[in-house]
């Protein structure tokens, strides 16, 4: 047989064996012992790396769960279902999951809020906020949908009035939208909270009313109507609900002249019908 043929087979085979030997050796030396439970936990977790648990991602969360540095209900988007599965997997007691929901606290859309400028820049709230936005109210929603962009769960959308809407069945409470809003209009609330002041304007009554039809004008009617003293207070021209004191009912909302404090309104909300029906009443 041709000598070159034999030599090349031997050389290639020899090299292959040497490389294989080194790789086997390296595998033995450098093998990373990963807890098999971590893999199972990762199967259960949503794997969106949303960061609502306050950790660096699902993988870090799983590792911390194994070493008992976090509890099984700390995965906010997973909710009760994931919490129960994790409890089963790790053999610990089931605990109630806390799932707060995002509430957008501005109802000044294109129809209600006055425009003071024309904005032609980058279509993003952060960029628009640098210039003060195009609405007269400098506290209200800018309407370019940074929060919708931030939502990884398709739980938000912009409606035809230029305001974001949260779909309550889809919201997992990761608070990504809270981070995204440059005007801090979105807050996380547990489902028991149903009474909200949908305004963040700190302007005096007359100024606020001129800029937006549904602004809080600090008339103090809700403060007086609330059954518990201190349940609703007016601070800096804005009504604030104290959720530890205020009973969750619709009593304080009845005499509101601008209808900016509402009870249980978010549940009624649907993407298209809500604003049009509410507008008819307000106008």
């Amino acid at each position: 047989m041709d000598a070159t043929f034999i030599i090349s087979v031997a050389a290639m085979g020899g090299l292959g064996i040497i490389f294989a030997f080194f790789l086997v050796l390296a595998d033995k030396k450098l093998r990373v012992e990963e807890d098999p439970v971590v893999e199972k936990i990762l199967d259960v977790l949503p794997m969106t790396n949303c960061g609502a648990c306050g950790r660096g991602g699902c993988h870090v969360f799983a590792e911390m769960l194994v070493t008992k540095q976090v509890t099984v209900n700390a995965c906010v988007p997973g909710g009760q279902e994931v919490s129960d599965k994790l409890a089963e997997l790790l053999g610990v007691e089931k605990v109630d999951a806390q799932r707060p929901i995002a509430v957008v606290l501005c109802r000044g859309g294109n129809v209600e809020a006055q425009k003071s400028a024309i904005y032609r820049g980058e279509k993003s709230c952060i960029a628009a906020d640098l210039l003060g936005g195009d609405k007269s109210c400098v506290y209200g929603c800018l309407g370019y949908g940074d929060c919708v962009q931030a939502c990884k769960f398709d739980a938000m959308a912009m409606n035809d009035n230029g305001l974001p809407v949260v779909f309550y069945d889809k919201c997992v409470g990761c608070a990504a939208c809270v981070e995204a809003c440059p005007r801090d209009l979105i807050e996380m609330h547990p489902p028991e909270h149903k009474l909200f002041v949908y305004c963040k304007s700190l302007d005096k009554g007359a100024v606020a009313k001129k800029a937006c039809k549904v602004a809080c004008i600090a008339c103090k009617l809700c403060e007086k109507d609330c059954e518990v003293t201190g349940g609703i207070t007016i601070e800096d021209n804005l009504a604030i609900v104290n959720y530890e004191l205020c009973p969750q009912d619709d009593v304080p909302t009845k005499r509101c002249p601008t209808k900016c404090i509402l009870y249980g309104e978010d549940e009624k909300m649907t993407r298209d019908s809500f604003y049009s029906s509410r507008l008819k009443k307000a106008v």
């Binding site: 050389a11 290639m12 090299l15 292959g16 490389f19 080194f22 790789l23 390296a26 595998d27 450098l30 093998r31 990373v32």
Partner: peptide, 19 residues
Amino acid sequence: TFIITIASLVQLVEMFIRK
């Protein structure tokens, strides 16, 4: 030869970084 060298090298580097 060069291809298998590079491939094994990458494997080794991967294992080392992982550790």
